[in-house]
């Protein structure tokens, strides 16, 4: 009985010691992780500031208008096209035929874009072969 108790105590002490050591290491590791994460968050926040400024620069109304004129077939809405009460959309008149959706892209612009893409890719392959 006594031996059992002694043996148990010894084993328990060793196990406890090992567990505490392990716990300490894990906690240290977690604390390092937290510090690294905090530093990462800090860096990300700084990067976000830069990205926000860049977004603002790239979406400045003048740039958007230039892009829109180049690629989109959209025109500014006329007063008759703006609905004052959007929760009351009128039904389509019965005799009116459904109009085909012309899409928002300029046909020329979308073709051009494809051309450019192919141009680029051919140029790239040329570059590689050289």
């Amino acid at each position: 009985m006594r031996r059992v108790v002694t043996a148990f105590a010894a084993v328990a002490a060793l196990a406890c010691g090992a567990a505490v050591l392990k716990l300490k290491l894990v906690v240290q590791e977690k604390a390092d992780d937290v510090r690294a994460l905090a530093a990462q968050i800090h860096d990300d926040r700084e990067a976000i500031r830069v990205l926000e400024a860049e977004w603002s620069y790239l979406t400045t109304p003048r740039a958007l208008q230039d892009q829109s004129v180049k690629f989109l077939a959209l025109m500014p809405p006329k007063a008759t096209q703006v609905m004052a009460e959007p929760d009351r959309i009128p039904f389509r008149p019965k005799d009116a035929d459904p109009v085909e959706d012309p899409g928002v892209l300029l046909p020329a612009a979308s073709n051009q874009k494809d051309d450019k893409k192919t141009d680029k890719s051919t140029r790239n392959t040329k570059g590689h072969s050289l």
Binding site: V34, L37, A38, A39, H42, R45, E52, A53, S56
Partner: peptide, 23 residues
């Protein structure tokens, strides 16, 4: 967790919709 704050010397200026005008 203490994240070191992003410190800038001068505050940003934004428009009424929060669009950045000066940073």
């Amino acid at each position: 967790i203490v994240v070191p704050p992003v410190s800038v010397a001068r505050a940003d200026i934004v428009d009424r919709n929060g669009e950045i005008l000066a940073t």
